[in-house]
C-alpha cells in the first residue's frame, strides 16, 4: 500500500518539476545534505521538528560546510528574504502529509514550523516520512481540518517549485518562492 503511494508521489512530483529520493532513515540526512551541497546551498533554515535531530540533519549539514539555523532563526526580515547574507539558502520542512496523486506536500504552521520557511529561501527540501502519504487531496484536507484537531493558523499546499507563466504564458521556475524543491521520502 505505502509502496504504491510512494511510487505515485515520486511520479507526480516529477510532473511538478520537483525532485524526489526514497531513503531509509539512516541515510536520509546525508542524502539531503548532499543534495543541498550540490545545489550550492550555503545556509539552511530548519523547521524545529524532532525529526531533524532523529535523522541527524544538523550534523550532516555541518559536515558539508552548510550553516544550519533552527526555526525560529535570529535573522531579520531582509536576511530572511535573501536580500542580505547568502543568496543560496534552503528551507527544510517536515510536511504533515503529502498527496500522492498530485505531488503536493502539506505544511502546517506552528511555533516550530514557520509558514514562510519554504518560500523565503531559494531552495526547498522536504523531509517526509513515507507513512504520511495519502492518496487524495480530499483525504489530506479532511485530516488536516478534522473535528477535534485544532485548526492550524496556516496550512500550505505546496506542489513543486514556484513558477510564473505571466511572461508569454510560458512556465518559468523560481518566481517568488523556491527555485527548486526536493522531497526526501523516508522509509
Amino acid at each position: 500500500m505505502t509502496g504504491a503511494l510512494v511510487d505515485d508521489l515520486v511520479a507526480s512530483l516529477a510532473r511538478r518539476k520537483a525532485s524526489a529520493q526514497v531513503m531509509p532513515a539512516a541515510e536520509a540526512a546525508r542524502a539531503a545534505a548532499r543534495a543541498m551541497a550540490d545545489a550550492g546551498v550555503a545556509r539552511a533554515v530548519l523547521a524545529d521538528d524532532p525529526l531533524m535531530g532523529d535523522l541527524g540533519l544538523p550534523d550532516a549539514l555541518r559536515r558539508e560546510g552548510i550553516e544550519a539555523l533552527l526555526w525560529p532563526t535570529p535573522l531579520n526580515r531582509r536576511e530572511m528574504l535573501g536580500l542580505e547574507g547568502p543568496e543560496d539558502s534552503c528551507g527544510v520542512t517536515v510536511p504533515r502529509m503529502a498527496v500522492a496523486e498530485r505531488g503536493t506536500v502539506v505544511l502546517e504552521a506552528s511555533p516550530g514550523h514557520g509558514r514562510g520557511i519554504d518560500v523565503t529561501n531559494r531552495h526547498h527540501v522536504a523531509l517526509l516520512p513515507a507513512g504520511r502519504i495519502v492518496a487524495t487531496l480530499a483525504e489530506a484536507l479532511a485530516r488536516t481540518f478534522a473535528d477535534g484537531h485544532p485548526v492550524p493558523s496556516a496550512v500550505s499546499l505546496v506542489s513543486g517549485p514556484s513558477r510564473s507563466s505571466d511572461i508569454e504564458k510560458i512556465s518559468t521556475l523560481g518566481a517568488h518562492g523556491a527555485l527548486s524543491e526536493h522531497v526526501v521520502i523516508i522509509t
Binding site: R16, R102, P111, R115, T144, S153
Partner: peptide, 24 residues
Amino acid sequence: AIGQDAANYVNLITGPRREGEADG
C-alpha cells in the same frame, strides 16, 4: 484555470499567527 491538476501554492489561512509562532 490553467489546465493543471494542482496550483503550486494553496494557502489556507485561519486568523492571525498564534501565540508562540515566529512569522505570519
